[in-house]
Nucleic acid binder design. Structure first.
Lengths: 344, 344
DNA sequence: TTGGGGCGAACTGGGCACGCG
DNA sequence: ACGCGTGCCCAGTTCGCCCCA
């Protein structure tokens, strides 16, 4: 402990503290400074984080509240946030949104006074109002990819642009019957992607052909969506799937149907990840900077904690959504009214 | 704070503290107890975790050091550990093994005195000797899936049995030329699986046909392994892949070759996850209880911290490895010397 | 008088061993 | 003996003060 270092170096704890923390206002002889530092090093002095944060207001810890870690998409956000926090000298506490919302004792352990300097909350649904409120009431918070309309700042990627890019890719290939497989109702992320899809259709004069179905975020719900789709009168020639995990299920359901991809139907999704290249058909996707999203949330939160910078929403447009072309999209087949086909 | 509650309730902080902590040795009038609790509730009193852990020795926090979170396999372990810790009333700090090993300031922030009651270290490689040492020197630790030969207790699943089960599945289908695609050299997990594979071959009198190749844990390294394999003189009729992510790459490389799965070559892997059903070919795998692994590590650590239970290695055999049959394995084709084929 | 160099003590929020009426 | 309060401790941080050249 500090006392030992101070005694060993022949100074008071006060001086030892200020020397070791490189307090610029302290004035000590160079010799004394050296001695204190040498002794501390020699004794392997490690400051006691708890004692330190009891006195000061800072704990050096940031809470990461995540949901659905099974999805590699969410893990990317987590990794980005974790890594940025660590680089900034903060440790990160991990919690699971559903558990926190259900189990009040977990929530209060997590939000116990003095535990955290701030919280990053990543939620795909819009259902965590109470959680957001409980958190933001006790500590500075930043929301990732969902805006609760309150005073909590939010960080987002350009979901609409990503969905528009995906849709335009299909339009350019000649598709005119493009359906959108959305996420669960109430998901703002999904809603934003849906409006990007609709906007792209509108810009190309196809607003009338918009067709939206809802699924969950899971692969199984993608399978189920395909079953439903096949019972419908006509299959669209292309599908924009709001989520890469859902799209995995879509692809294997189409394979099992069987419906040829991309010959009979093209599929494109939002978010890129390592597994897309290895699915039933290598899946074309729009890449969004998810690690950057997590990192930006961390940066915003840390700036807020340190009182730097204005606390306002961040909208990540750089790098822009990028189309990762693989094998799941192609020209529509036997729609002879499509001029692009005639040219081919 | 406690003082305010005490004042408001007309008692001393000591009494307030002991009432709120349900100290069984304290003697208070029922009326007083009620009053204190009512006031605390009304004032929304939340104990200050930092002050509390400064006095006591406990912090209520457990560190989770993970590596390669991109792999859903590792995320399963994380989820199991996180969830168990949370249920036991501990919060969890997340850190990344590589970063901790490289960046000394991150390590000391993480291991700062008073921050953690213990650490769960999950590492697939055997290269973190220094990390293990630094951690275990400053706080109780538990290793997941790797034994460093030191005094640090370890929790493992039955990798050998899983690999043996996978190999036997292939042997029973009639395969005699079964290769093993191992993980990186130095990985104890991979080594244990390799010996399970060899044991199974030996039991069936095929020890001579053992053939082992090394890859990384990534999907790309699975792709690369297939390239190498195809340049070899003869392709085996079946492949046991030590890791499901690697196997993803193997399957898509085989598709692109093309080499028909399972007609020309059967593939089976260790570890089950949601994406296996959606790969180039739905992948047969051996399921190991990974969430249980994480949870068991947490339980062992918490027992250690609380001074309960003997601190010794845990070997998880329940539930036993289970074969998840999908479409990537079948009988070997044109090996006419195999009697099973003749019967077919 | 001034200022370089350093020290003492209060304070952070609670826990707990005593002790008092 | 019941019911409860006083005061020190945890390990640092920091403000104000002091001493001496």
């Amino acid at each position: 402990m500090l006392r030992d270092v101070a005694r060993e170096a022949g100074v008071s704890p006060a001086i030892a503290s200020r020397v070791l923390n490189v307090d610029p206002t302290v004035r000590v002889r160079e010799e004394t400074r050296q001695r204190v530092q040498a002794v501390a090093k020699e004794m392997g002095y490690v400051p006691h984080s708890v004692a330190r944060s009891l006195r000061g207001a800072r704990t050096g810890a940031i809470g990461l509240v995540m949901h659905e870690l099974e999805s590699p998409i969410n893990v990317d956000v987590l990794a980005g946030a974790q890594s940025r926090c660590a680089q900034a000298g903060y440790v990160t506490l991990l919690a699971e949104a559903e558990q926190l919302a259900e189990d009040h004792s977990q929530l209060s352990a997590f939000l116990a006074r003095g535990r955290l300097d701030g919280v990053i909350l990543h939620s795909g649904y819009g259902h965590e109002d109470r959680l957001v409120e409980a958190i933001s009431r006790s500590v500075p918070a930043v929301l990732v990819n969902s805006d609760d309309g309150r005073a909590v700042p939010t960080v987002r990627v350009d979901d609409a642009a990503a969905a528009a890019l995906a849709t335009e890719h299909l339009l350019e290939l000649g598709h005119r019957e493009i359906a959108f497989l959305a996420g669960p109702k109430g998901s703002q992320t999904s809603d934003r992607r849906e409006s990007g899809y609709r906007d792209a259709l509108t810009r190309h004069g196809c607003a009338g052909s918009a067709r939206v179905m809802h699924a969950g975020w899971s692969a199984d719900s993608g399978v189920a969506a395909v079953q439903k789709l096949r019972h419908a009168a006509t299959l669209p020639t292309a599908l924009v799937v709001a989520n890469a995990v859902t799209a995995s299920g879509v692809l294997s359901a189409l394979r099992d149907a069987p419906v040829a991809v991309p010959d009979e139907i093209s599929v494109v999704t939002i978010h890129d990840s390592w597994f897309l290249a290895h699915l039933a058909v290598a899946l074309t996707a729009v890449r969004l900077p998810l690690q950057d999203l997590g990192a930006a949330a961390a940066t915003l939160l840390i700036d807020t904690i340190d009182g730097r910078g204005p606390v306002q929403d961040v909208f990540i447009t750089e790098p822009a959504p990028e189309l990762m072309l693989r094998n799941s999209t192609g020209r529509p087949r036997d729609r002879t009214r499509d001029p692009l086909i005639d040219q081919a």
